[in-house]
């Protein structure tokens, strides 16, 4: 295993880098889209509410692999040529944003209605009350579940391997098929994933305990 790591360390690290890059881009983008969709789901406007609900329900109930493969195969055929990394990251973003929307929405719901009423009574517009009073409180509540979403995101980014997305799992597959040291290679790949996910997981549990 040591020899394997020594020979292929740069390949592992490259994959690790792409995995982190893809996860971070998808995290930022899906936080943005997810929050917008979450707000859509709770506003009084019926059209927006329908858009939000439909978006969330569709993408939560279709496998990530289907979404990612669709972007990888179909978009280049009809729209624009994109590589596996881009297709994978877009797919990850869309899939994750649906879950983030759900998390943020329940966060908003958990904020006492009195907060909104008090803000409106002070003359704030709905958007202002949302932006300055409700959402900041909601985000505090949803930090632990969002952390879990991020862990899922990092784990899910392994589907990039299906679409040649250069990520950790993809590089692992490549090394495994070259060296036939399959089990050892995947042990190292696993360790790399744990380097990201375990600390977040423990930190989130610590946060949950403190908030409870």
């Amino acid at each position: 295993m040591i020899t394997l790591l020594r020979t292929y360390w740069s390949t592992f690290l490259t994959g690790f880098g792409w995995t982190i890059l893809s996860s971070c881009i998808a995290l930022v983008a899906s936080l943005l889209i997810g929050s917008i969709m979450a707000v859509f789901e709770v506003v009084p406007n019926k059209t927006l509410r329908t858009i939000g609900t439909v978006y969330v329900e569709i993408f939560r109930n279709i496998p990530l692999l289907v979404i990612v493969s669709f972007f990888y195969l179909v978009i280049p055929m009809y729209v624009v040529k994109i590589n596996g990394f881009t297709a994978g990251t877009i797919g990850l973003t869309i899939y994750t944003s649906a879950f983030i929307a759900e998390t943020v929405r329940s966060g908003i719901k958990s904020i006492n209605i009195g907060q909104m009423e008090a803000s409106r009574a002070m003359g704030m517009k709905y958007v202002q009350a949302m932006r300055f009073i409700v959402l900041p409180q909601a985000f505090k509540v949803v930090i632990p579940p969002l952390g879990n979403q991020f862990i899922n995101l990092v784990k899910n980014s392994s589907v990039l391997a299906f679409v040649a997305g250069f990520d950790l799992m993809y590089q692992g597959n490549a090394i495994a098929s070259q060296t036939f040291a399959t089990v050892n290679t995947y042990l190292i790949v696993g360790a790399f994933y744990l380097v990201i996910t375990l600390p977040i997981s423990y930190y989130m549990r610590h946060l949950e305990k403190r908030l409870a």
Binding site: I151, K155, S158, G190, T197
Partner: peptide
């Protein structure tokens, strides 16, 4: 829990 399922499948 903190590993990708894909990796478990390979294992």
């Amino acid at each position: 829990r903190n590993l990708p399922l894909l990796l478990i499948i390979f294992f």
